[in-house]
Design a protein around this nucleic acid. Structure first.
Length: 301
DNA sequence: CGCCCTACCTGGTTGC
DNA sequence: TGCAACCAGGTAGGGC
């Protein structure tokens, strides 16, 4: 389940192995992988062949590569099981290979990439690639399709004070807010549960009860857990999430809450609980993360 | 507009 | 053994 740290690992791989390369061929093997590109697979290929990729960028769980001198960018989302792999052209096709992009050359920064191609592989087909106009005035070639996605907590331009004020205005609960990509991007179910465990906050706490220090603390924990995961290559439960070279990260062994039902809380020893939540699961320590007391919400300021 | 819910998709696991 | 139900979950879009 790729969230911000896993997507950043992939972005770094694209930056090293794909940036600057000129595209010679695009093969779309499954139409669903390109469904966000409304003009269709042939148009997608036509607009890319003969062009070169610019630097790799990321916002939250989205990543993109500007297509030089076109005013467009290729946008990618890994969904739940998507992989962007740099493979030798002669390597056998993966079972769930959806899109193949071939290049004329290796990037000047990585001559050893000669003879490799970029593959989008995705078992569950929630992810995909598409091509979009760039938002005018944004230096990094931000695709217009994700202009509504909030900046992520590792972005220097993320506005902590505005995030706190948004929490205070909302009539929702804290985990819902963490997963709302228009408030803060890059946080998914795993890192939400991990940050809430670290912050000793229950997932159902109303956001309107968050004080400025509590919001600041929560953001600190989100940033800390993501930075730690990034440092070890991200979280992998199996071979589904990998970097562009097919390697898994090591953060799964460092998780404190997610996936640890009935295992002792690493702070107090109480068994971690799993609760059905929004058609998925929330993992939390019933002692460290006390459920909110039900009472009338305070009036908005 | 704010908030909430559902559909989308595949393969591994569980239960009968 | 076979088959159905369940589980993983990010996002767009629709209902109210």
């Amino acid at each position: 389940m790729p969230e911000l740290p896993e997507v950043e690992v992939v972005r770094r791989g694209l930056e090293r192995w794909v940036r600057g390369r000129t595209i010679t061929a695009v093969e779309v093997r499954h139409p669903r992988a390109i469904r966000r590109h409304h003009a269709g697979p042939a148009d997608f290929a036509d607009r890319l062949v003969g062009r070169a990729f610019g630097p790799a960028h990321r916002r939250g769980k989205y990543l993109w590569l500007p297509v030089e001198s076109t005013g467009t960018s290729v946008l990618g989302h890994l969904g739940m099981s998507g992989q962007l792999l740099v493979q030798p052209e002669k390597a056998p096709d993966e079972k769930h290979l959806r899109i193949r992009i071939r290049f004329a050359d290796a990037p000047p920064s990585a001559p050893e990439a000669a003879g490799t191609e970029l593959r989008f592989v995705d078992q569950r087909t929630f992810g995909g690639l598409s091509l979009h106009a760039q938002v005018p005035g944004e230096a990094d070639g931000l695709p217009d399709a994700i202009a509504h996605i909030a900046r992520d907590p590792l972005d220097p331009a993320f506005d902590d004070a505005a995030f706190h004020e948004a929490l205070r205005r909302r009539r929702t609960t804290v985990k819902r807010a963490l997963l709302d990509q228009s408030l803060i991007s890059g946080v998914g179910n795993i890192y939400a549960d991990e940050a809430l465990w670290r912050a000793k906050l229950h997932y159902d706490r109303p956001t309107a009860t968050m004080t400025r220090p509590r919001s600041a603390e929560l953001l600190d924990h989100v940033r800390e857990v993501m930075a730690e995961a990034l440092a070890v290559g991200g979280t992998s439960f199996d071979s589904l999430y990998v970097n562009v070279n097919g390697e898994s990260g090591y953060f799964a062994r460092s998780l404190d809450a997610y996936g640890r039902e009935d295992e002792p809380c690493r702070r107090c020893g109480t068994p971690i609980r799993r609760r059905p939540w929004m058609n998925r699961s929330s993992y939390y320590c019933p002692r460290c993360q006390r459920p909110p007391v039900r009472r009338t919400l305070p009036a908005p300021r």
